[in-house]
Computed example of a mutant assay.
Amino acid sequence: MAVIAIENAKNWQDKYRQIMLVGKVLAPLAEAYKVEAAQVKGCESQAWLYHHQLESAHFFCADSDSRIVKGLIAILLSATHGKTTSEIANFDLEQYFTQLGLSGQLSPSRTNGLTALANAIKQFAAT
């Protein structure tokens, strides 16, 4: 699993490279879906998020115009995609990124954007 590759990376450059590789897993959104209503507010770069609920499970698709942000989105979605409302509500972004060795490595603007994305996922799951 790609998240394990990030955990096992020996230094920040390797982690950065792994994050961008993970981002390639996300299919790009068609331009028609890159609309303001789907934009995640709080991200320095542009990021779009869509949600679908099937019974009690929540599914997401997302994209970004930044390769590193797209990778971070893919990592976040790997932890929340297909989860229940309760599982998503209890998801601890800070703890998850500490486990991956990413805490303190991201710029404040990327951390804020990632937090905004995690909050948007939680908000979708709560409705």
Rank of each mutant, 00 (worst) to 15 (best):
Q105E: 13
V35R: 14
V35Y: 03
L49F: 10
K10N: 14
Q13V: 07
D63V: 07
R67Y: 00
R17T: 14
E31M: 11
I6W: 08
E7S: 09
I88K: 01
R17I: 11
A126L: 11
S78N: 10
A27G: 11
E36T: 13
A120T: 14
F59L: 12
H51P: 09
W48V: 07
G71K: 05
D14I: 02
H51Y: 13
A125Y: 03
F59R: 09
E55R: 05
G71L: 03
M1S: 15
A116Y: 11
V3R: 11
D63I: 06
A32G: 00
S66F: 02
A126W: 01
I68M: 15
K34H: 01
L100E: 10
L76K: 04
I6F: 03
I19T: 08
W48L: 08
Q123E: 14
D92R: 04
D92K: 12
T85D: 05
S64L: 07
N8V: 00
D63H: 00
E94H: 12
L21V: 09
N119P: 00
F60P: 01
V40Q: 08
A5W: 01
I4W: 02
Q95K: 15
W12R: 10
R67D: 11
M20N: 07
S107F: 04
K10G: 12
L29E: 03
Y16K: 09
A30C: 09
K41H: 06
A5R: 12
R67T: 08
A37D: 12
K10Q: 14
G101T: 08
Q53D: 02
G113P: 05
E36P: 03
E94M: 09
L93S: 08
Q13T: 11
H51W: 14
T85Y: 02
S78Y: 07
I121R: 02
Q123T: 12
L26E: 04
V69S: 06
G82Y: 12
I121G: 02
L54W: 08
Q123H: 12
S103G: 00
H52A: 12
Q46R: 14
L26Q: 07
Q39H: 10
I88F: 03
A125G: 06
K83S: 06
L76P: 05
L114A: 11
A79S: 11
F97G: 01
A79G: 08
I73W: 01
T127G: 13
A120I: 01
K15A: 03
L72K: 02
Y33T: 01
F124C: 13
Q46E: 13
A2M: 14
I73Y: 06
T115A: 09
S66T: 09
W12S: 11
A125K: 03
V69Q: 04
A38E: 11
P108Y: 08
V25R: 12
A57R: 13
A116D: 05
C61R: 15
G23D: 07
Q105H: 15
G113E: 01
I68L: 15
A30E: 15
E7P: 00
D65T: 10
A118W: 00
F60N: 02
G42M: 07
G71A: 11
L49C: 10
